[in-house]
């Protein structure tokens, strides 16, 4: 595995005193794509949320680019280089597309220079995001609540990219999108991977994930049930499918 960018060790987390995650180990290397899978309610979103301080971290350790961020408030983890595309997308409805992109953007100068690879990557600018998603450029003056699901997802990805992440975390990358739009999103993620960005992606499209990802992790009842290189996915398709609930 390449040098670890995100390293989660023995993470226990939950909401209030209700524990959801029990000792999660997970690593994403620089430039690597890791697929996070599991049936409904198994703790994928809780894991993602605990990375950015939106779920209660009870025990364990989270390291990002070699820094212990376990006790960091969420915004500092984001600034360390974690770009979040949250479940449900949560674009800002009353802000237009451009405002959505600009509001939380950071300039390249503000981006962390922790990793050699990270500093070599081309920084994200508004015009680069518009080049990447021409659809957003066309809709730049439309409000978030006027966008289709696919456009909202592009916006949520663009918004995360403008925080200059070294790791993009997508919770439900293609949920609720039409098949053609899904294909667009997968291609987008492929291009981002080719550009050297590390990605942690939650989704249930096994075929798309096995094309994109390097490794996979399957959660079951708040624990890692299986993990390994994606090549396993095709060899052990039936076991995997049982785990992630696609019959």
């Amino acid at each position: 595995m390449p040098r670890p960018l995100l390293q989660v060790t023995g993470l226990e987390a939950g909401y209030g005193s209700a524990q959801v995650l029990f000792g999660i180990d997970l690593a994403v290397g620089e430039g690597e794509v890791v697929a996070l899978m599991g049936r409904n309610g198994m703790g994928k979103t809780t894991l993602v949320r605990s990375l950015v301080g939106l779920a209660n971290r009870m025990a364990g350790r989270i390291e990002f680019a070699g820094v212990d961020v376990t006790r960091f408030p969420g915004y500092r983890v984001a600034r360390a280089g974690l770009g979040l595309v949250p479940e449900g997308r949560h674009v800002f409805r009353s802000l237009d597309v451009e405002e959505n992109l600009v509001a939380t953007a950071r300039s390249a100068a503000q981006a962390p220079t922790g990793s050699a690879e990270g500093s070599a990557r081309e920084p994200w600018t508004l015009s680069r995001v518009y080049e990447f998603f021409p659809r957003l450029a066309e809709r730049r003056h439309h409000r978030g609540n006027q966008l289709s699901g696919g456009e909202q997802q592009m916006l949520a990805i663009g918004r995360a990219l403008l925080t200059q992440p070294s790791l993009l975390v997508l919770d439900e990358a293609t949920e609720g999108l039409a098949p053609l739009i899904r294909e667009d999103i997968w291609q987008t993620l492929g291009r981002l991977k080719a550009g050297g960005l590390a990605v942690l992606v939650v989704d249930r499209d096994l075929r798309a994930l096995s094309r994109l990802a390097d490794r996979y992790v399957i959660l079951d009842k708040g624990q890692v049930a299986r993990s390994g290189p994606v090549s396993d996915l095709s060899e052990q398709a039936s076991t995997i499918e049982r785990h992630i609930g696609v019959a």
Partner: peptide, 25 residues
Amino acid sequence: TRLGMRIRAGAENGDIVGALGVNVR
């Protein structure tokens, strides 16, 4: 202004604004 955008975004969803790197406090 960008501060204004953040304030309006924060009015909608402060958690997400924070998760994107803004010190919401």
